[in-house]
Design a protein around this nucleic acid. Structure first.
Length: 959
RNA sequence: GCCCCGGUAGCCCAACGGCAGAGGCAGCGGCUUCAAACUCCGUACGGUGUGGGUUCGAAUCCCACCCGGGGCACCA
């Protein structure tokens, strides 16, 4: 490394705050913090207990979304949220909080495995080197993390507990009456005692062991299911619905995905649908995220109704049972199991053709614009239970097998899709509601004079409140009612009393597919006995370690091969797979589960492990959990405060999956009494993204963004004009800027400050390397105000602060505190710059910085640029880090001025300014304003019609 | 198609319904220099996407539309 500054011809002052000095200061303090364990947060109990340090401090748990340790390393966009949480956490430490802030790694996952497949290097080796690199990059950023708590999901002591939680889920069932999960043993007790009837009402003691096991297994929150799954030969694995894009391809890699029936682990998240929905109201989350979760859960209230048909009852789900009188045909999904028996001989060819077509175009053309309704008549008729009339049964691909019952009653006058279908195939569209006059007016249709409403002129279905017509039968009439709510109630009651249907709630949310045909994931703590029944391993046999493999490939398959069945890599570890174990009834042969858990598993509970990372007796000590995450109102978490992380920061891309799965697991743990919080993340904040410009040459090839020049509004590279676009940073766009480059060029403090100053944390913004220098100049000016650039000695004097500067200082303290509390770091930085600019005037005038200003400025800067602040703090004579110094407090008496300048508006335009004593009342302000010569001139003798005086703000005269 | 979020100076962004400008970049002018770079000092050119409305007063509230970003997408 080259020796410091004094190169010939360079007359830069020796102690100028430049990148070289910043690097020395920063690495020095990073070492000191590490040595002293500055950011280690004490626990009230367990292995990290330090009760004395906990006492008397409020706690704060700040959390960043769990990163995947990518092999590509970080770019400048990645740390945005980490810097934000670090600034907030540091600020809160200075406010006296015991702050827990840590970062671990979500290190299982597909990329490491695919890397292993191509290189032959074990995923653990690759993963650990990626983690090491990411740790290095983040350490250089000066994040105040408690290093003791940095766990990785791939650590055996970590995934031991992931497996333990799986067993908790497996060994539980959902008691719908109690609205909570309970241990499976309690279910057995209920069956044994007869308190709960068995499905076929036989006595528990009359059932065979296998029958009992079947019943119990069918209640578990983790269960095996033979279900259509998304098989992706290109990845060699099946995927969750959420990992498949709308056009039927894999989220990762964009390979084709096929439906296949397989026996898979499922998690009964649907049991929690209502609680996941209801508890959103008690969370401090951005509304758009709550909305996305509500949409995903997709609760809709309606009814199930049975229609008699030659093939037996066809059950439909409808949200509009009140429109049952208008159901003039039925539509089944092409895959519906009754289609074959409903189809008559003469319709068979047409129906089969449609089914084949639907299967082939599945999910693909469904997104096409202007899609036309297609379908076929099955030849059979069902009976409308209200009208008793026979209505034709059709199949059509606009009805999805995966939602509701896969069959609908079609009410063409009241549902737009049914309307279009009826128009397409010439089916009748009788009206059962008379829309309001406004509806007819809006569509320029003459309003019918009586109940003879003719839908022939309607442009579409009518949805909403309208007077019911043609809706009566013996013992039931809606005619004359005009409320949908009322109509639903009446029909539901009738259906239930006639046993033809019942009110019900339907959800879009599906159970969670929990098996993956991969190597690099948590093995299930499950073995199968000789009957193929899953058996939970006891606690004492955890962890189930991943076996070593020579070859990590799931299976080399053609991405378009939808015939071959998936074979997970663990199937090849024969001596691992087939074991003899004593599970209580003597040594027996068992076969291990060869699927592994999905990557979501670890991130479903990692925040709990941060709390007590080294505990070998509990996944988290209950007292420790209660301390960091318990409901702040001291309640039970069921009502009032939910408990959970105090601040969770991450990108909006995890709005649904991660946040929903983690909430689900947390609620199971809550129900079983393992945690006191009923939600994992009480407050959620979505940070924006840092994006970047990219440039393409005339052939469409990206060119290195760093070498593009701007001239006269155009962009040039290598003598050629290039086109600019805006998007994510990425290798393929050649627009990556790394934190390492920023450390070298400016230093970590400048980099941190720039990221925080670019805009509010929640906003996305473009990266601009050339703008970074502004923050470096700011820190240079701060440094120069406190330190002599030539000698390196302090320029701080114990002199009184001039009154005006003092007032500004206290206004700044007040404003900065407020901004920090609200995560408004960009405006906090602006206030600090403003203060420092004023300080510069004072230093220019007097030659030194008043000690009061120096101290407060350094303290206020420290959350944002902690290295520089600690260096200056030490130079100011303190031996401890500034980390735990109390944040400056404003003197309230200095926040108010003696006099206020009022703008005087005439008809809303500012015409004059008057200076008025701050304590002047309304009348005084008014008389001073009216006496002002400019005002007198503007009024020209006229009397204002109205005078508005807002004390402390302004005066407005209306003439 | 539906639902969110956002449009303020050349750019990134501030502004409890009350003086449109806190801060940064770039630009321009100046100091310094043999000259330049760096540093430093100074400097606001726009009236808030468009059109209406409410109000004494609108960037801010309401309605419609336009543009950009994101989510959902035949969900019965």
């Amino acid at each position: 490394m080259a020796p410091p500054p004094d190169q010939s011809g360079d007359d830069t002052p020796r102690f100028r705050y430049n990148s070289a000095l910043a690097a020395r200061i920063e690495t020095k303090w990073q070492d000191i913090w590490e040595e002293r364990g500055t950011f280690e947060a004490p626990n009230p109990a367990g292995p990290l207990a330090a009760p004395d340090e906990v006492a008397g401090r409020r706690k704060l748990f700040v959390l960043d979304m769990f990163p995947y340790p990518s092999g590509a390393g970080l770019h400048v966009g990645h740390p945005l949220g980490y810097i934000g949480t670090d600034v907030y956490a540091r600020y809160k430490r200075m406010m006296g909080f015991n702050v827990l802030h840590a970062l671990g790694y979500d290190s299982f996952g597909l990329p490491a495995e695919q890397h292993a497949i191509t290189t032959g290097v074990h995923p653990r080796v690759n993963t650990e080197s990626n983690v090491a690199n990411m740790r290095r990059q983040l350490r250089r950023l000066g994040l105040g993390h408690d290093a003791r708590r940095s766990v990785s999901t791939t650590d055996e002591p970590f995934y031991r507990w992931t497996q333990w939680i799986f067993l908790q889920v497996f060994n539980s069932w959902y008691d719908a009456d109690a609205r909570r999960a309970r241990p499976i043993a309690e279910l057995v007790v209920e069956f044994e005692s007869g308190r709960r009837p068995t499905p076929d009402a036989r006595a528990w003691s009359d059932l065979t062991t296998a029958e009992r096991n079947d019943i119990v297994d069918a209640h578990r929150l983790a269960y095996l299911s033979e279900a259509p799954v998304n098989w992706c030969p290109g990845l060699g694995t099946i995927l969750a619905n959420e990992e498949v894009t709308a056009d039927g391809r894999s989220d990762i890699g964009n390979y084709p995905v096929f439906k296949k029936n397989m026996r898979q682990w499922m998690m009964r998240i649907t049991a929690y649908a209502d609680r996941l929905l209801d508890d959103l109201d008690r969370l401090d989350w951005p509304e758009p995220i709550k909305l996305m979760q509500r949409n995903w859960i997709g609760r809709s209230e309606g009814a199930r109704v049975d229609f008699a048909s030659p093939a037996g009852a066809i059950t439909v789900f409808t949200t509009r049972p009140d429109t049952l009188f208008g159901a003039t045909f039925m539509v089944l999904a092409p895959e519906h199991p009754l289609v074959a028996s409903l189809t008559t001989a003469d319709r068979r060819n047409a129906v089969e053709a449609h089914r084949a077509r639907a299967a082939a175009t599945k999910d693909l053309d469904r997104t096409a614009e202007g899609r036309e309704k297609t379908g076929e008549f099955t030849g059979s008729y069902a009976v409308n239970p209200l009208t008793g009339t026979e209505i034709p049964v059709w199949i059509a691909d606009y009805v999805l097998m995966g939602y509701g019952t896969g069959a609908i009653m079609a009410v063409p006058c009241g549902d737009q899709r049914d309307f279009e279908f009826a128009r397409q195939f010439g089916l009748p569209i009788p009206a059962i509601q008379r829309p309001p006059v406004a509806w007819f007016d809006a569509h320029s249709i003459p309003t019918p004079v009586d109940d003879r409403v003719d839908t022939a002129q309607w442009p579409g279905a009518f949805v909403g409140d309208g007077v019911y017509i043609n809706s009566s039968r013996e013992g039931l009439s809606l005619d004359g009612l005009d409320s949908v709510e009322e109509g639903k109630r009446v029909v539901n009651a009738w259906l239930e009393s006639h046993r033809l249907g019942h009110a019900t709630i339907n959800y879009k949310l599906r159970d969670w597919l929990f098996s993956r045909q991969r190597y690099w994931g948590e093995p299930f703590p499950i073995v199968y006995d000789e009957d193929g029944r899953p058996v939970a391993l006891p606690d004492s046999m955890l962890p189930v370690l991943l076996p070593e493999l020579e070859d990590f490939k799931p299976q080399a398959l053609d991405p378009d091969d939808d015939v071959t069945d998936p074979i997970p890599p663990l199937a090849r570890a024969a001596e691992w797979r087939d074991v003899t174990l004593d599970l209580g009834d003597g040594p027996r042969r068992y076969r291990r589960e060869i699927n592994v858990m999905p990557q979501w598993a670890g991130s479903c509970w990692y925040e709990l492990r941060y709390l007590d990372p080294t505990n070998t007796d509990h996944f988290v000590d209950p007292e420790v959990e209660r301390y960091w995450m318990g409901p702040t109102d001291g309640g039970d978490g069921r009502t009032g405060h939910t408990g959970g992380v105090d601040l969770y920061v991450g990108g909006v891309e995890h709005a649904v999956l991660h946040l929903l799965y983690a909430r689900f697991w947390h609620k199971v743990l809550f129900d079983l009494g393992h945690v006191s919080s009923s939600e994992p993340f009480h407050r959620l904040f979505n940070q924006g993204y840092i994006q970047a410009f990219a440039y393409r040459d005339p052939r469409g090839q990206p060119v290195p963004a760093a070498d593009v020049e701007e001239r006269d509004g155009d962009y040039w590279y290598d003598g050629e004009r290039v086109a600019r676009e805006y998007g994510k940073m990425g290798k393929s766009l050649k627009n990556i800027v790394t934190p390492d480059e920023m450390y070298d060029e400016f230093g970590a403090d400048t980099f941190r400050l720039y990221e925080m100053s670019m805009g509010p944390l929640e906003a996305s913004r473009p990266w601009n390397t050339r703008d970074v220098v502004g923050m470096q100049r700011f820190l240079q000016r701060v440094w120069r105000n406190l330190v002599d650039e030539d000698t390196g000695t302090l320029r701080v004097a114990d002199t009184p602060t001039p009154e005006e500067l003092r007032r500004l200082l206290h206004r700044s303290i007040d404003g900065v505190r407020n901004d920090m509390e609200n995560l408004r770091f960009n405006t906090a930085i602006a206030k600090l710059i403003e203060l420092n600019n004023a300080l510069t005037q004072e230093v220019t005038r007097s030659g030194s910085t008043p000690a009061e200003v120096a101290g407060s400025l350094v303290q206020m800067l420290s959350p944002l640029c902690p290295h520089l602040a600690d260096e200056l703090w030490a130079m100011l004579g303190h031996s401890d880090s500034v980390t735990y110094e109390p944040f400056p407090q404003p003197d309230p008496s200095l926040l108010v001025d003696d006099s206020i300048e009022y703008p005087v508006q005439i008809n809303g335009k500012v015409r004059a300014r008057v200076v008025v004593p701050a304590d002047a009342d309304q009348a005084t302000v008014q008389s001073i304003a009216l006496a002002d010569e400019k005002v007198v001139a503007a009024l020209a003798g006229a009397n204002p019609k109205k005078v508005i005086v807002v004390v402390g703000r302004m005066v407005n005269l209306v003439i």
